[in-house]
Amino acid sequence: MPQQVKLPETLIAILSGLPESGMGYQLVDITLKDGRTLSRRKVLNAEFLLLEETENIHTEDVTGVMLSQRSSS
């Protein structure tokens, strides 16, 4: 089962007020405290960031979040 990490409460509150990308999830761009940005990542229930297999990210590593731009189909 894919790993997930809970976002900080302040970011959960932000995402809870933003539109979903589908039922129960949002596509977001995440900013980490080391300066990296992770694009188009999935967050479930506005609180759980899905991690890739080798990722090791903790709640306190995540400093910012915004909705990813909708891509054209």
Binding site: I12, S16, P19, E20, A46
Partner: peptide, 20 residues
């Protein structure tokens, strides 16, 4: 999958904006 689904406003008993 979540009983505490965050798009459900249980205080005002409604669906939050931007929800599917």
């Amino acid at each position: 999958a979540y009983y505490n689904d965050r798009r459900i406003d249980t205080v005002n008993k409604k669906l939050r904006p931007g929800s599917y």
